[in-house]
């Protein structure tokens, strides 16, 4: 059976975003199989709602919003979502240790991390930080788009991003310090 006009429009508008959608899912899932299920479910839900979509909606942001709902539905019982997000102050001793006068120690710390390891650390963050960092810093979306996708005010995006990046910095510095004080590192 030949695809009709609407199927063609759906294919044309969503297919270019599949890889990026998959990357976002992969960065939030514990195993690749779960990310694959999320992407499939996202596109199926997108198809069901496609006829109601108005022309001015940015397709990628719309797909990410559906993906976020799919993930929330799937991980509703995940205990990690219930945990309180820790708040790290700029006065944290660890943060002050690595003053980053480029090219300084913190920049070096960042350059030494593989993408895979960075993703692992981001995944370990509480969801409210993890999602804004993924959407803003990795996907490069605007604050307005992130706010729209997650259903939160832009001011909340900003505060979560500030806190999330700070927490991420603390974890990275902590890890680097740990490596430096091991006997092998000293020798």
């Amino acid at each position: 059976m030949k695809p009709n006009k609407q199927q063609k429009a759906f294919e044309r508008q969503t297919r270019p975003w599949r890889d990026r959608l998959y990357n976002v899912a992969l960065r939030r899932a514990d195993i690749p199989a779960r990310a694959e299920d999320w992407v499939q479910e996202t596109l199926l839900r997108a198809w069901r709602d496609f006829s109601c979509l108005s022309d001015h909606v940015a397709i990628y942001a719309w797909l990410l919003k559906i993906l976020d709902h799919v993930i929330v539905d799937d991980t509703r019982r995940d205990a990690r979502r219930q945990q309180l997000a820790p708040v790290v102050s700029t006065d944290d001793v660890l943060l002050l240790e690595q003053r980053s006068v480029a090219p300084g120690p913190f920049e070096q710390t960042l350059q030494n991390q593989s993408d895979k390891h960075m993703i692992e650390i981001i995944k370990s963050l509480p969801d409210e930080f993890n999602s804004v960092i993924l959407l803003r810093d990795i996907e490069g979306l605007s604050y307005r788009e992130v706010a729209e996708i997650l259903g939160i005010p832009q001011g909340t995006v900003m505060s979560r991003l500030s806190r999330g990046r700070r927490l991420l910095s603390t974890i990275l510095i902590k890890e680097t310090n740990k490596i430096e004080i091991t006997p092998c590192g000293v020798g």
Partner: peptide
């Protein structure tokens, strides 16, 4: 310092 960390990150 935090601003610099935020930018680098």
């Amino acid at each position: 310092i935090d601003v610099e960390h935020q930018q680098l990150l």
